[in-house]
Design a protein around this nucleic acid. Structure first.
Lengths: 145, 145
DNA sequence: CCGTATGACCGACGACATTGACCAGCTGTT
DNA sequence: AACAGCTGGTCAATGTCGTCGGTCATACGG
């Protein structure tokens, strides 16, 4: 269903999604109409969900990055979820099993801002914050084999 | 340094990084050479770190996604970091402050596989795993204002 | 007040994407 | 066994797009 060539195309686009069809064609040994058709099918099937861009938040002053675990107080789950979605400094959030209901990624410019954001949650939830020091594994794909 | 137009370009590429220069030019009211030049400068300055693609891991059988907190045993920090990097099912990993030294995202096909992966770490670290049930906030940008 | 740096525009040319006509290889049917 | 239909590919023509060189306006500093 997704063969070696599809995987090669995905890897190539993972590295640089602006590669031309022609370049992808050469990489894969196909013609560019074929590549175009394969991408269309990958999109259609939902494998390829979108083409996007990687931005460095530090360039906008976000010096601090934190992983926040959030445990809503009884009855506050919905409200906490709404709040997290509404605070744009949260750039990612997963709802998970376990005591911590949410695990979110937070970007802030300073400790003061960190405090401000967490205070907003404090009346509805307990939070546990870990500052990111380094990112040993950058976003990558699991093996497609 | 990064003006409104740059931000507009970034947002447009965040939504679809394969947009043509011409389309970006129309969006921004500039000519395509100008857009090209702006993208070049954004890349040069490291604001725009790359063009990539979003893939649905479920299409490759990865039914389960987990957030794993990892606390290495004394003296095992380096070894644990190496292991996480070497296990491709970990698709993201941050080294953080606090008791948990690492927080990582893990994709697996089944509970058995989850167990197998965590066992590899078990002789060097304690782990705490939360299964992702839902993702209320998908990867997005913090405000650029 | 002039010289320069910056960031934009335009037009031409070469590169690229898209389209339509066609073909090869399978698969299942009569 | 022959054939229809489907899939996934090629090629070539056409039109769109990106790039490059040259030009121009504006803002800033000497």
């Amino acid at each position: 269903m997704t063969d070696d060539i599809d995987q090669l195309l995905i890897k190539a686009l993972m590295e640089d999604s602006r590669r031309s069809l022609k370049a992808l064609a050469q990489l894969s040994g196909l013609s560019s109409p074929s590549v175009s058709e394969r991408l269309r099918r990958l999109e259609e099937r939902g494998v390829l969900k979108g083409y996007t861009v990687e931005i460095d938040p530090r360039c906008f002053g976000y010096q601090l990055q934190a992983i926040v675990r959030v445990r809503p107080l009884p009855g506050q789950l919905q409200e906490v979820e709404r709040q997290i979605m509404a605070i744009p400094e949260f750039t990612e959030c997963d709802k998970v099993t376990g005591d911590d209901c949410f695990i979110a990624r937070l970007h802030v410019r300073s400790m003061e801002e960190l405090d401000t954001v967490l205070d907003k949650l404090n009346s509805h939830a307990e939070t546990n914050t870990a500052i990111v020091k380094k990112t040993p594994v950058k976003r990558r794909l699991p093996p497609m084999a």
